[in-house]
Nucleic acid binder design. Structure first.
Lengths: 232, 232
DNA sequence: TAAAAGTAATGATAATTGTCATATAAATTG
DNA sequence: CAATTTATATGACAATTATCATTACTTTTA
């Protein structure tokens, strides 16, 4: 009865729908349900940090987190954002290395932890699963390469426009039209790779030009066409 | 007899020694030897270009190439360098997408092409091979993330020092002590993500400070300690 | 609710980096 | 080998971006 309960939970889980785990059959899901542990993470808290040994994979059931790295000058570069339905920690598990990036909650989160042994077992016995995992990581690699080229070749203004569009496209907007994802100015600066003040200044410029609207912490994209033109 | 000949060639191949292919057994190597095609690429020529459909994987038998992407402003960002012993085109093969980056020879190269069907077959039947491939791609992902943070957070001067050290550590030096890999100033600028003139200027500065020595196209690293300190 | 702490906004200024022009050196070609 | 092209180097200047200082606004905490 307890097993059925857990199994049903994993079966209906958003992570199962969206991630590599969709290749798992009922038996395999049952095994996960039996070994997984759930955790709640509060906004601002880490799931794991750079250098931690992560002996498994985290499934994001709800919430959003940032994957970032502290650089020598003390600034936090956000490499990637992760939302519900995705897995976390796959790379360091496969490479058998400590985490290269910190994962910190941007809102309250629910995550499930699946131990490494379980995942590696599926990797060996379920080709569709390993192929899915592989494709996910390849997708990450492409995204990161493109991000690298963008940071390297675009101006801060272009990157800000690009990032605002990215945030709306990937995390949606609230009923009032503002970006759903809540980033501080410092975090937004960390995403585009610039100083906080430069980021704030450009947001003000965009605001004055009517491209966006700022009300408190909320950002509303007003002129997508022009933003897209700036972003290239 | 012909098969034995080819098999022996693949068995002794540097790519077999160094890449994911080391997991293949004699039978599997024989199959590769039978289906592979070899090619010579001259310096400056592409193996494939951004957008090309690459229906397999290239083994680099000799030579070095750059993986780069043309950005909107016409500059070529070098994302990665690849040398003998490595595989090329794995990501786009697995993602089933056109190449995201161009691969262009920096010196004359010898490459072997292995069709996709063959590789995917090994992927399904040889767990060690798929694990190796996975680890390679995970390694690439880590490297690219770190490169991203470096480009985003370090100054051009820091990145130049870092890149010069990287080039010496990974591609060695000639008998006269100069960097073995031959990059034009434009390419070096494309690696560190800056304008060609800025790159040239900083090389001159490093030269005047005695950190490096420039003689023609050759670059000799003279003061590794100081270069490392600059690179952080 | 008032004080404190943190976050956002803006000005002033400095440092970094890019662009354009031009000179010099090296490589290629007829 | 001279002529042409290409790559490297440098100067002058402009644009972008960072840093530091200050103020205004929000949120948290006592």
């Amino acid at each position: 009865m307890i097993n059925l309960f857990f199994m049903s939970k994993c079966e209906q889980c958003i992570v199962r729908e969206l991630s590599s785990l969709k290749a798992l059959n009922k038996d395999e899901l049952l095994r996960i349900a039996e070994c997984k542990t759930s955790r709640t993470i509060k906004k601002g808290e880490p799931i794991f940090e750079e250098g931690d040994v992560v002996n498994g994979v985290y499934c994001i059931t709800s919430g959003i987190c940032k994957m970032s790295k502290l650089s020598a000058n003390g600034k936090d570069q956000i490499v990637k954002l992760i939302k519900a339905g995705e897995l976390l920690g796959q790379r360091s598990m496969i490479s058998d290395e400590p985490a290269n990036l910190s994962a910190i909650a941007l809102e309250d989160m629910e995550v499930c932890f699946i131990p490494k042994a379980e995942i590696l077992n599926f990797f060996d016995t379920n080709n569709q699963f390993s192929m899915n995992l592989m494709k996910t990581i390849c997708g990450d690699l492409k995204e990161t390469s493109d991000h690298l080229v963008s940071i390297s070749q675009k101006t801060v203004k272009e990157r800000l426009a690009e990032t605002l569009i990215y945030l709306q496209d990937n995390f949606g907007k609230n009923p009032d039209g503002s970006l759903h994802i809540q980033l501080s100015r410092e975090e937004l600066a960390g995403m585009i790779g610039t100083a906080t003040e430069s980021c704030i200044r450009l947001l003000s410029d965009f605001n004055k030009l009517g491209l966006i609207e700022l009300s408190g912490k909320k950002i509303i994209l007003k002129d997508m066409a022009k933003l897209k033109r700036i972003a290239d």
